[in-house]
């Protein structure tokens, strides 16, 4: 009984606690935004782990897909529900924003998934280092395209998302962003976990370990690659959309290779092919960034240095390939997450 329902109990109560404390303003705005960024980082690192960990590719352009999601959901939300310089009056009654918001984020994710084809299709023929270049190029192409569209602000960026959130809060005064970040974060891990633990999804690990054997043993490798790349970039797009609405402002400069590198750091810190590792490292990494904030630019010397040192002594990351349940088998008695 406990095993079966513990996750069903823990997650809602955790979410409820978060929402309650946000509502009662027990947490400061700063703490709350750090928690929300933590959620976004969990989405980013676990989705990249699907490609870099489970599938064994080396994608360094995750921020590009995040950027697509962020822009699509921001533009869509503002066009539909907010008064804006670019789009003029809202297209729909802002009262509907409260219902449409999750769909807006999802559509951003779908757009990013389609952008994922930019990498998925070349991956049929190329692997490894060559694919890494393609992902870098894809990241630059996405950023550069947006910089060149002057009507949505170009490199200056785009804003107005706070007004969408505002009209949601007008209808029901709830901390909407923490709620949705929490839901999407849990949803992401849940989707990924189900995917990689199904026999279907294990085809991805088969590709990682021996692509020739996978194809010969009837795994449709091209299809699996397409699905995995699209899922990974789609989830990154969702993360990007949430990121944009948390900050209330997007500009291409936030999604450069540096951001992609940040996500890479989280994936390898946690361990390739371990979802719980990715979650753990995203939490740790976000904390670390905030902890080292007073150091200013030295932060970006210390974090890479720590990773370099870690690579020397524990290159497989915190968790390696294992999940939480593999390290503490007793935990398995208390929860089941599927």
């Amino acid at each position: 009984m406990l095993r079966r329902y513990s996750v069903h109990l823990i997650l809602p109560s955790l979410g409820g606690l978060l929402v309650y404390s946000a509502y009662e303003e027990l947490l400061g705005l700063y703490t709350l935004s750090v928690l929300m960024f933590m959620g976004v980082n969990i989405i980013l690192s676990s989705s990249l782990n699907l490609v870099n960990g489970y599938m064994g590719e080396f994608s360094c352009g995750h921020a590009g897909f995040m950027c697509v999601g962020a822009y699509v959901s921001s533009l869509l939300g503002v066009w539909l529900f907010a008064k804006d310089r670019v789009f003029g009056a809202p297209f729909l009654d802002p009262d509907y924003a409260i219902y449409a918001f999750p769909f807006i984020i999802l559509i951003g994710g779908i757009a990013a998934a389609i952008a994922g084809l930019l990498v998925a299709i070349p991956s049929y023929k190329t692997r490894g280092d060559y694919l890494a270049i393609i992902t870098i190029a894809a990241n630059y192409i996405i950023i550069s395209s947006i910089e060149n569209i002057g009507s949505i602000g170009g490199s200056r960026g785009f804003m107005g998302m706070k007004r969408v959130i505002g009209s949601m809060e007008d209808i029901a005064d709830l901390p909407w962003m923490p709620i949705w970040v929490f839901i999407f974060t849990v949803g992401t891990i849940w989707v990924l976990r189900r995917y990689v633990s199904s026999t279907f999804g294990k085809g991805v690990s088969a590709i990682c370990q021996d692509e020739v054997a996978a194809e010969i043993m009837s795994v449709n490798t091209n299809k699996m690659k397409t699905i995995s790349f699209m899922l990974s970039s789609g989830l990154a797009g969702i993360g990007g959309g949430l990121f944009a609405y948390i900050i209330g402002y997007v500009n291409p400069g936030s999604f450069t290779i540096l951001k992609s590198t940040e996500v890479l750091v989280m994936v390898y810190l946690g361990g390739m092919g371990s979802l719980s590792g990715s979650v753990l490292s995203a939490i740790l990494f976000t904390f670390l960034l905030e902890l080292l904030r007073p150091l200013g630019i030295f932060k970006w010397v210390i974090i890479p240095l720590m990773l370099v040192i870690m690579m020397q002594f524990r290159p497989e990351g915190i968790m390696g390939k294992r999940e939480l349940g593999d390290i503490f088998p007793r935990l398995k008695r208390f929860y089941r997450f599927k």
Binding site: F58, C60, T261, L264, V265, Y268, G296, I297, F298, W300, V301, I303, P304, L305, L307, V308, M311, P315
Partner: peptide, 19 residues
């Protein structure tokens, strides 16, 4: 792992210069 290390070394060079 070596590739990641290289990537991190690049960041270190960049930002220690900046710092």
């Amino acid at each position: 792992y070596v590739v990641i290390t290289a990537l991190m070394c690049g960041l270190i060079l960049e930002h220690s210069n900046l710092a």
